[in-house]
């Protein structure tokens, strides 16, 4: 064993194990918290009542649907896919709830599983077709975007279904608390999603597949079931988003969530998820959702005109992504 140090003259360092400390793991979020803080501050200054508990409660009431969809989207983006169908699948699921409860007279507990099933089914279709037929998920889910929207119109006969109080409790703040069951559910999904991604074999494989699918294959791992599951999860969460939105609005609207997929993608990207796959964090995505929602409600609260709203929202997205890229490059240069 005389040659073990050939080529190394510096004192030998042993391989270090770093168990990431709480402080270190929260560094990526500092920037986003700061941007959020600045936004809240600006709106607080511009508006009479933005800095209030009711605003907080109302934000908590409005984010669950976008949150759960963005969790699914993050997972899909991590495996280097994309799911453009989530908005339409949300509408379809919402339509299923509406049709079953209003026309079919089903109780909520029976309509919800049916609706989640519809969402997961759409997701499965996306996954199976894109993985086994090797069609880019961009195309497959673009198709599903149309199919699911059409399905939503078909099921509701293009009519908004008013359901009323039987679904409201999901999206209504609970007595004593100022948050709704939907909000708690969404937070639970964020936490579970983050654990799934960072602490389980499943999550580890997703990151690996998104980084280099061929290397994963050569490591003797079949990636297809994982990729398909991810699309199914995204569909399922879109279905859940449908339930949540239906309860928030007490109605099932077949026109719901047009363009929501773009908001979800924006939330993921603001949170630093890479569209090329292999990198993403659910917690960061959640911050992205918060940022988008704070912008939306804040701008509405100060009464900004529609063009202003769009220009500001777009600019903030670009700035947030820029900051994230800068932070990443800085981190790389100091590795």
């Amino acid at each position: 064993m005389k040659h073990q140090d050939v080529g190394e003259t510096s004192p030998k360092r042993s391989v270090r194990q770093t168990t990431s400390s709480l402080l270190a793991s929260s560094i990526p979020y500092v920037g986003m918290v700061a941007v959020l803080g600045v936004l809240v501050l600006i709106f607080g200054l511009m508006s009479r009542n933005f800095l209030s508990l009711t605003t907080l409660a109302s934000l908590a009431n409005q984010i669950p649907d976008l949150t759960v969809i963005s969790v699914g989207m993050t997972l899909v983006l991590i495996v280097a896919g994309i799911d453009l169908s989530v908005g339409s699948v949300l509408a379809l699921s919402s339509a299923v709830v509406g049709a079953l409860m209003v026309d079919g007279g089903w109780p909520l507990w029976a309509a919800v599983p049916a609706c989640l099933l519809a969402g997961a089914g759409c997701g499965c279709f996306n996954g199976v077709v894109s993985v086994y037929a090797r069609i880019p998920s961009f195309i497959v889910t673009l198709g599903m975007l149309e199919i699911a929207r059409g399905g939503a119109y078909l099921i509701t006969d293009s009519r908004t279904k008013y359901i009323g109080s039987s679904v409201e409790w999901i999206g209504t703040p609970m007595p004593g608390l100022f948050v709704s069951p939907a909000f708690l559910l969404a937070v639970a999904i964020v936490v579970c999603g983050q654990l799934l991604l960072t602490r389980t074999v499943f999550g580890r494989y997703l990151v690996a597949i998104g980084t280099n699918a061929e290397a994963v294959r050569m490591a003797g791992i079949r990636s297809e079931p994982y990729a398909i599951s991810v699309f199914a999860i995204s569909g399922l969460l879109a279905g859940l988003g449908g339930v949540i939105q239906t309860s928030r609005l007490s109605s099932a609207d077949p026109n719901a969530a047009v363009g929501l997929e773009l908001a979800a993608i924006a939330a993921c990207v603001i949170g630093g998820t890479s569209l090329a796959g292999g990198r993403g964090s659910i917690i960061s995505t959640f911050f992205g959702v918060l940022m988008i929602t704070v912008l939306q409600t804040g701008l509405a609260q100060v009464g900004a005109s529609d063009p202003t709203k769009r220009i500001i929202t777009g600019s903030v997205i670009v700035v947030a992504v820029l900051l994230d890229a800068l932070r990443r490059n800085w981190g790389k240069a100091h590795d």
């Binding site: 209030s52 109302s58 409005q62 609005l249 109605s251 026109n255 719901a256 409600t297 509405a300």
Partner: peptide, 13 residues
């Protein structure tokens, strides 16, 4: 509907 929900909430606050 959903946009109206967001905007109306903001207005009421």
């Amino acid at each position: 509907m959903s946009k109206a929900n967001t905007i109306a909430s903001s207005m009421l606050r």
